[in-house]
Amino acid sequence: MNALTPLQIAFPPVLAPHPDTPVHAVLQQALSLATLARTVALLVREASPLPVDMTQRQLALLLHLATMEGPHTVRGLADALRLSKPAICRAVDVLSEAALVERKPDLRDRRSVLLALTSTGRGAVHALAYQLSTPNEA
């Protein structure tokens, strides 16, 4: 008979719970983070200054590019966001078509491309941050 291993949940280091935290508390943290992600995605969709209706994946990619120092490759983004490379490419296709993200050749590795926000993308992220930080006047 095989011994059962503890439930393994991969958290980013900043969000990792203390090793002595009970499993149900870890699951509650995971649920809270998922709920927060859905809430932000809904807020973005409801009154978004962004020029495209975004999925959570596309929003995560856009915000990662805006907040994390580059250069950014498809592989690096896939690792950072824990997504497949094809999923990153599909998200970049949509964001590129909306002129929010651009692909640039990687001069050090001709097989690779670097991804960056365009000036339109930076402006959209700033507008989104402003909108989310401004109280809703009903």
Rank of each mutant, 00 (worst) to 15 (best):
H126F: 08
P86W: 00
R75V: 14
A3K: 15
R75A: 14
R45F: 04
R111C: 07
D79E: 14
L83Q: 04
N136T: 10
L132D: 00
L27E: 02
L63R: 03
V113H: 10
A60E: 09
L81H: 00
I88W: 01
G76T: 03
A25S: 11
A41T: 15
L7M: 07
K104Q: 14
E46F: 09
C89S: 15
D106K: 04
L115Q: 00
A37E: 04
E102N: 04
D93K: 13
T67C: 12
S112A: 13
R57P: 01
T118K: 04
S96V: 07
V52S: 05
T35I: 10
S32Y: 05
H24M: 11
H24A: 11
P12A: 11
R110A: 14
P105N: 10
A47C: 14
L83E: 11
S84D: 13
P49Q: 02
S119D: 13
D53C: 11
Q29P: 00
S112Q: 15
L100G: 04
L100C: 00
R90H: 15
V52F: 01
P19I: 00
V92D: 03
L61C: 06
E102F: 02
T118P: 07
R108T: 14
S32I: 09
V52W: 02
R90G: 12
S32P: 04
S133V: 03
Y130M: 10
L107D: 10
A116R: 15
A98F: 00
N136W: 14
L33C: 04
A129K: 01
D93I: 05
E69H: 14
L114G: 02
R110T: 12
E46C: 12
V52P: 08
S84M: 05
A98S: 00
A116Y: 05
L83N: 06
T134A: 08
A34I: 03
A116W: 01
L33K: 06
A87P: 12
A129C: 07
M1S: 15
A91N: 06
T73L: 06
G123T: 11
S96M: 09
N2M: 10
L95R: 01
H18A: 09
M1D: 13
R82F: 13
A3G: 09
D20M: 09
I88L: 05
R82A: 15
A78R: 00
L42E: 13
T39Y: 10
V40L: 04
A80R: 02
A25R: 15
A60G: 15
N136R: 09
D79P: 05
G121P: 02
D20N: 13
L50D: 12
A41V: 07
T35Y: 08
L115G: 00
E46I: 08
T35V: 14
A10Q: 12
R108D: 05
S48R: 05
D79G: 06
A30Y: 14
A25M: 09
A87C: 05
A80K: 00
R122Q: 08
A34W: 01
L31W: 07
L36P: 02
R122F: 01
A47T: 07
A98L: 03
Q8C: 08
L4N: 08
A78C: 01
P17N: 03
H64A: 10
